[in-house]
C-alpha cells in the first residue's frame, strides 16, 4: 500500500509543479538517511518516480568508496595459508544496477561505459607495483567476490512501471553497509539514447550507541579501553562473586 501512496504523491507533485511536469524524468527522494543500529539487518529503499514519455529505465545505486584488501591462499607444504595480499582502492562499496530490461539491450556499450553501467567496468585502483596481467587477475577476483557477497549486482526485474508513466524500484540494502553517502542515478532511455537523467543521494550512518562506541574506540581509544575493561571487571564481579557471597 505504501508504494501506491508514493505513486499518488509523485503524480500530484508533478501536476502541481508546471516546470516538473515538463521534465522527462522525476524521481521522488527515496530517503535522506539510513541509520545503522544494533538490530539493523538491512533495509529496503524505494525509488519512486514518473517519466513524461514511455521508455526504458535504469537505476544505478552506488555506495561510498572503500579500501579492500584481497588475500590469496597458497599451499605451503600440506597447508593452505594466507599468502599474497593486495590493496584495492577507490572501488564503490556497493553497486546495484536495476533496469526494466537487460542493460546491454537498452544502451550501446559506449553509453554503458559512459554512465558506469558495466559491473566489471568500475574503476578500482590496484596497488601500482603489480604487473598488468597480475592486476587483472586480482581485479577479476575482486568483482567475483563482490558479486558473490551481494554487493554488486544487476537486476532487470526490480523496477515496476505503471501505465508507462509511473515507476517504483525496491532496492534491498544488505546488513553490513559501509557508512557514507550513497548516490541514486536514474536514467530514462528512449530508442537507445538517454533522454532523462537524475541524481539523488542518501546517507548511511551509524546511529545511537553504535556510533558512540565506534567514535570513542577510535578517537579516545586508550580511555575507552581502560573504562571498558574496568566495566568488564565490575560486570564479572557483580555476576559471579556477589550472588555467591549471598549464598555462602
Amino acid at each position: 500500500m505504501r508504494w501506491l501512496l508514493c505513486l499518488l504523491f509523485v503524480s500530484g507533485w508533478m501536476l502541481q509543479t508546471p516546470s516538473l511536469a515538463e521534465e522527462p524524468l522525476v524521481v521522488a527522494p527515496a530517503t535522506s538517511d539510513v541509520r545503522i543500529t544494533t538490530d539493523f539487518a538491512g533495509t529496503t529503499i524505494q525509488a519512486v518516480g514518473a517519466m513524461s514519455k514511455s521508455g526504458e529505465l535504469i537505476i544505478k545505486l552506488v555506495g561510498p568508496k572503500q579500501q579492500a584488501t584481497l588475500s590469496r591462499e597458497t599451499k605451503v607444504g600440506p597447508f593452505w595459508v594466507e599468502g599474497e595480499r593486495v590493496k584495492m582502492e577507490e572501488a564503490p562499496s556497493l553497486l546495484f544496477l536495476y533496469a526494466t530490461s537487460p542493460i546491454a539491450s537498452i544502451l550501446s556499450p559506449e553509453d554503458q561505459q559512459k554512465y558506469g553501467l558495466i559491473l566489471e567496468g568500475v574503476w578500482v585502483r590496484v596497488e601500482p607495483q603489480l604487473k598488468a596481467h597480475a592486476a587483472s587477475d586480482w581485479r577479476k577476483a575482486f568483482f567475483r567476490l563482490k558479486e558473490k557477497q551481494g554487493y554488486y549486482h544487476e537486476d532487470d526485474r526490480a523496477i515496476r512501471v505503471f501505465g508507462n508513466r509511473l515507476f517504483i524500484a525496491d532496492m534491498r540494502l544488505p546488513g553490513d553497509l559501509q557508512v557514507g553517502t550513497y548516490t541514486v542515478e536514474t536514467l530514462l532511455v528512449k530508442s537507445g539514447k538517454v533522454v532523462g537523467h537524475t541524481v539523488g543521494s542518501f546517507k548511511v550512518r551509524l546511529s545511537g550507541i553504535e556510533r558512540w562506541v565506534w567514535n570513542e574506540a577510535h578517537d579516545r581509544s586508550w580511555l575507552f579501553g581502560s573504562l571498558f575493561t574496568l566495566l568488564c571487571m565490575l560486570v564479572g564481579l557483580a555476576l559471579n562473586a556477589f550472588p555467591l557471597r549471598r549464598t555462602h
Binding site: 572503500q66 579500501q67 579492500a68 584488501t69 588475500s71 590469496r72 567475483r144 567476490l145 557477497q149 559501509q178
Partner: peptide
C-alpha cells in the same frame, strides 16, 4: 575460493 576479501572499516 583461494581469494578472500577484508574491508577496511573507516
Amino acid at each position: 575460493d583461494i581469494y578472500a576479501m577484508t574491508i577496511e572499516v573507516r
